[in-house]
């Protein structure tokens, strides 16, 4: 029972913090409604309403041309609306983009497209793969400085049967063809590697070395604001011994851009 109490308590604390933060966020999100929600007017013959934010949900109503809809909230590509009779439902963003606002102009919502992929500023993602024989998981964030050049920060965890490795890298990425949907890049960087051998091995000795790397990869734009990223990197581990070590890593993952 003692074993149960501690995690229970920690869990309850977490729940409390969660509830508190939700209460706080609810206040600034919904608490003071000074500005009215935006309204749009249907100009197509009709707009279909669904019961939920996915195309699998059934259509239960349609707004006719000339009706006014209030935009309440958004989940992925679906907007929750209500009309003057107080009905509520979900309409697709493509339908909302064909409505007009009170000034009579077409509604403009920021829909990420391939064009934005070229002009992105920030990207972040998660990649998985192999570092030599071991499984490697990495997260990164990048800032695009020019069309061709970006700087990135990586944190990698490598879990093998002989050791646990943590690796941090800074690198510069050059993409020669920023307009391509499938855009190759090359990269150069440096960092630090922390190797912790498994305790079951005979002489466990923690190691902490500098590393440098060069790599090749590709970014493939998928849709909206995400893309697939795949890369191969060759690491040089600078040891204090007579010879340096080399390691090859490949990984693939999904990234989002802003």
């Amino acid at each position: 029972m003692d074993l149960l109490k501690r995690p229970m308590l920690r869990f309850a604390l977490c729940l409390m913090i969660l509830c508190f933060s939700l209460g706080a966020s609810a206040d600034w999100l919904w608490g003071s409604d000074e500005q009215p929600q935006p309204r749009v007017k249907v100009v197509k013959p009709f707009i279909e309403w669904r019961t939920g934010p996915a195309s699998g949900y059934p259509v239960f109503h349609a707004s006719e041309k000339g009706e006014w809809l209030t935009l309440l909230k958004r989940k992925t590509a679906w907007l929750k609306v209500n009309d003057e009779k107080g009905r509520e439902g979900w309409v697709h963003v493509e339908d909302v983009l064909e409505t007009v606002d009170a000034t009579g102009e077409k509604v403009v919502l920021n829909e990420p497209r391939f064009d934005d992929f070229g002009s992105r500023r920030w990207e972040m993602g998660l990649l998985m793969g192999q570092f030599e024989e071991a499984a490697s998981t990495a997260i990164y964030g990048g800032y695009q400085m020019t069309e061709n050049l970006s700087a990135e920060l990586w944190a990698t965890q490598i879990l093998g049967s002989a050791s646990e490795i943590q690796m941090y890298n800074v690198n510069i990425v050059h993409q020669p063809f920023p307009d391509w949907q499938l855009s190759p890049f090359m990269t150069l960087g440096a960092g630090h590697i922390f190797i912790e051998p498994k305790s079951t091995l005979a002489v466990p000795e923690d190691r902490d070395n500098s590393i440098g790397h060069a790599g090749l990869g590709v970014r493939a734009y998928v849709t909206d604001n995400y893309f697939i990223r795949a890369e191969v990197k060759d690491y040089k581990i600078f040891t204090s011994r007579a010879t340096n070590e080399e390691a090859l890593e490949w990984k693939i993952g999904l990234s989002i851009f802003f």
């Binding site: 869990f11 977490c14 729940l15 969660l18 999100l29 919904w30 500005q35 929600q37 935006p38 309204r39 749009v40 935009l71 309440l72 909230k73 958004r74 989940k75 992925t76 907007l79 606002d101 009170a102 000034t103 009579g104 102009e105 509604v107 403009v108 919502l109 920021n110």
Partner: peptide
């Protein structure tokens, strides 16, 4: 004045946090 649609007023709920 007639208002244009301000996207910032539409709350997007794409994130989910839970226990």
């Amino acid at each position: 004045q007639p208002q244009k649609v301000d996207e910032a007023l539409i709350d997007t709920e794409n994130f989910e946090i839970g226990a």
